[in-house]
């Protein structure tokens, strides 16, 4: 499938097969033949991509908040690309976003009514 990485992939919303937001395409991973093998998402990948002081700051903040590596989504899991990148799998099968998990565990789930 011929896609322009810069125009058709980067910064696009990733949705799982049920339409649940997974993240943005913050960066992509290429193989030696410059084929996209994986989508990278998360504030670390984002910070690294935009660079500069702000980028470093975002990346460092993400690292501090438990995000060790960007989330990697193999390109095989992509079903189709339109206004969003649609995956053929459900979000639960992917590595969970670190910040989401951390905030859920330390804040949100401790507040009554969070699971309803």
């Amino acid at each position: 499938m011929a896609l322009l990485i810069g125009f058709d992939l980067l910064d696009r919303q990733i949705l799982d097969r049920d339409g649940f937001p997974v993240g943005k395409v913050d960066d992509v991973e290429l193989d030696d033949e410059l084929r996209v093998v994986a989508l990278l998402t998360g504030q670390r990948a984002f910070g690294r991509r935009i660079g500069g002081v702000l980028g470093r700051w975002i990346g460092a903040a993400a690292a501090r908040l438990a995000e060790k590596e960007p989330r990697r989504i193999p390109y095989d899991a992509v079903d189709h690309v339109d206004a969003a990148v649609h995956l053929s799998v459900r979000a639960e099968l992917l590595p969970p976003p670190a910040l989401e998990a951390w905030l859920d565990q330390h804040l949100i789930r401790r507040i009554p009514g969070a699971g309803e």
Partner: peptide, 23 residues
Amino acid sequence: VAQFFGWSWGKLRRPRSAARFHT
């Protein structure tokens, strides 16, 4: 903020499914 970073968001989701948004 959530839509910029691609997080799950929304008032119809239970808070635990959108922890970053609710925070």
